[in-house]
């Protein structure tokens, strides 16, 4: 299973500046494992220490947010596109 993975600007330092890279795997988790073998350090920016998806990224398989597809267990099929985008949030907060 080969998929295209679109990389956001902030993470292109891990892919030598490439906007899009190929990876293989039958689940999102396997795709990230494959990516890590060629782009060391990238996986830690996508998966939080607790094991879930990192809060700083939105990840999609084609048009679907993977949180609605089973998260890391989301199946991927040959020819699909995995898109990684920055998940922006912020605000004054209740402490200030």
């Amino acid at each position: 299973m080969t998929v295209q993975v679109k990389i956001p600007t902030i993470l292109r330092s891990y892919t030598g500046g490439e906007k899009s890279v190929e990876a293989s795997g039958e689940t999102l988790d396997a795709v990230f494992g494959d990516l890590e073998s060629r782009h060391a350090g990238l996986r830690a920016r996508l998966i939080a220490e607790g094991g879930g998806l990192h809060k700083f990224v939105n990840i999609y398989v084609d048009d679907e947010d993977v949180r609605f597809l089973g998260g890391l267990e989301a199946p991927v099929k040959d020819g699909q596109t995995v898109t990684i985008l920055p998940a922006v949030a912020g605000g004054a907060g209740s402490q200030t």
């Binding site: 700083f56 920055p86 912020g90 605000g91 907060g93």
Partner: peptide, 22 residues
């Protein structure tokens, strides 16, 4: 916008600037 405080980055803003936008 910040609606009750000054127009300066909060701790949350800084965390997301570092982690998400770059």
């Amino acid at each position: 916008s910040h609606t009750m405080t000054e127009a300066a980055p909060s701790r949350t803003d800084v965390r997301f600037a570092v982690g998400a936008t770059g």
